[in-house]
Nucleic acid binder design. Structure first.
Length: 437
RNA sequence: CGGAGUGUAGCUCAGCCUGGUAGAGCACCGCUUUCGGGAGGCGGGGGCCGGAGGUUCAAAUCCUCUCACUCCGACCA
């Protein structure tokens, strides 16, 4: 993509409404624009990142055996009256009335809707287990939206729902998702901290939140630092010991925190108290929805039993902000390779110079043909402005072509993280980029 | 929902106290000299001063109402 043609409105100064670094950088890097409090448009650069995050989440859900579907944003109030949550949810839920005076709502979550689908289709225990998910926009009418996409009112969430015949099966489904979440967050370049959590309005008795450590996090965490070394491959969802296995690392939100237990179980050097951004939560809640809504199947003995359920959320749009909180410096964003909007920024230092531009154009074509995502700064701007723009948008690599290198037959390849630079031939630079992750 | 602020050019802000017909820097457009980490010169375009009402000869400025946004708290994924 040529920067001269790309819609990328960069801001040199910090917009006054943005208080935290991810919000500031997303606005300055031309990723988002605010439409109303807690409601954002995603501009081309931000949209590319959002789609990459979404795709990694999707791949790991599919790999864990969940099946993608798509439920609507608008739901009938009737289903929520069945579960009892229509009144419980309060003003967080955006209620809408259609032209026929029917009560509707913009879904804050989808337990009711998916349970309705299941009860109308699945009749036998032979059809279980099932795990269905979708990636859809949600709306929660927060009293006080803030921090950009980290706490928006409208947000993109992946939510999965598992259905099992009994509790043992549901626990297996739960830990399959647990393991998939660990892998997902690691692929996004993050270090997830899974903590025991309250179940909140979703209900149930088993829940974990997944947090990313950041000073701007809204949650307070207490954990054994070794939990950060947890390898998801060591989690066997089918093992009866999986809960005690994971329980060996103390990790809790402040609501669940027990100072006495923390001190007794975790040696002092490994005790951590830190702020975290919640990027995912998993719940096992049994028959909380299936029982009142009549989602039952015929068991092996022919009796009708309510299905055992769990739900599993990942804040896809919030993750974009969380990744920036976890990976930036004074100059701008530092994208992990897996979600970077482009792999490399190609900088033509002398767009007004025919030789320099010819060399840059040639390299641009070569990179594009090699299937490398490249953002080509072909504008006539000062070098300082170009470097600042590239550092701000934080692509993993920068490839610089200027008269100095041209005379020596080299280009400069710079790594955004760490800032290491090297002069090498254009061919060698392309090879390096092709070979890197 | 309580408390505190802010709304003036695309962005950051000054002007408001003490009313007199709208400003700066950056950004943008043209020309030019430049340009290896946000470069200089000259010229230019861009504003229902958030909205409505009021006071006044005269309102960005004073008064009333209203809307939006931000921050702290409570609440929340």
């Amino acid at each position: 993509m040529r920067l001269s043609q790309y819609f990328l409105p960069l801001l040199r100064e910090n917009p006054s409404e943005a208080q935290i670094v991810s919000h500031r950088l997303m606005l300055r890097a031309g990723m988002i624009r605010q439409a109303a409090a807690g409601i954002y448009s995603w501009l081309p650069l931000g949209f590319r990142v959002l789609k990459k995050v979404e795709q990694i989440v999707r791949e790991e859900q599919n790999a864990a055996g969940a099946q993608e579907m798509l439920m609507p944003t608008l739901q009938p109030a009737e289903l929520w009256r069945e579960s009892g949550r229509y009144e419980d949810y309060g003003k967080e839920m955006l209620r809408i009335r259609d032209r026929h005076e029917r009560d509707m709502l913009y879904g804050p979550t989808n337990e009711e809707l998916v349970t309705d689908i299941l009860r109308n289709t699945i009749k036998s225990y032979r059809d279980l287990p099932k795990n269905l998910y979708h990636i859809q926009w949600k709306f929660r009418d927060e009293v006080r939206p803030r921090f950009g996409v980290m706490r928006g009112r409208e947000f993109l969430m992946k939510d999965a729902y598992s259905f099992d015949l009994n509790k043992e099966g549901a626990i297996v489904s739960y830990f399959k998702m647990f393991s998939a979440y660990m892998k997902t967050f690691k692929r996004l370049g993050l270090v997830p901290i899974p903590v025991r959590a309250e179940t909140g309005p979703i209900g149930g008795d088993l829940s974990h939140e997944f947090h990313i450590q950041a000073e701007t996090g809204e949650s307070e965490l207490f954990f054994d630092s070794d939990v950060q070394l947890l390898d998801e491959a060591s989690i066997d969802p089918a093992s009866p010991q999986v809960q005690s296995y994971l329980g060996q690392w103390y990790a809790a939100t402040d609501e669940k925190h027990d100072p006495a237990e923390f001190e007794a179980r975790v040696p002092e050097p490994r005790r951590r108290k830190a702020r975290g951004i919640e990027v995912g939560q998993v719940f096992y809640f049994g028959t909380k929805y299936s029982a009142p809504m009549g989602a039952t199947v015929a068991g092996p003995d022919g009796t009708q039993v309510p299905v055992e359920m769990g739900s599993y959320g990942i804040g896809v749009s919030r993750l974009v902000g969380a990744i920036i909180e976890a990976s930036h410096d004074d100059a701008g964003i530092i994208w992990p390779a897996s979600v970077a909007p482009f792999k490399v920024g190609l900088v033509n230092l002398r767009a007004a110079d025919a030789k320099c531009t010819a060399a840059a154009d040639a390299l641009y074509r070569t990179l594009a043909q090699a299937g490398i995502e490249v953002l080509y700064d072909d504008r006539e701007e000062s070098p300082g402005a170009k470097f600042a723009a590239m550092d701000l948008i934080g692509l993993p690599w920068q490839l610089v072509i200027g008269p100095r290198g041209l005379a020596a037959g080299t280009v400069e390849l710079k790594e955004r993280a760490g800032g290491a630079r090297q002069e090498l031939s254009p061919e060698a630079a392309v090879n390096r980029l092709e070979g890197s992750a």
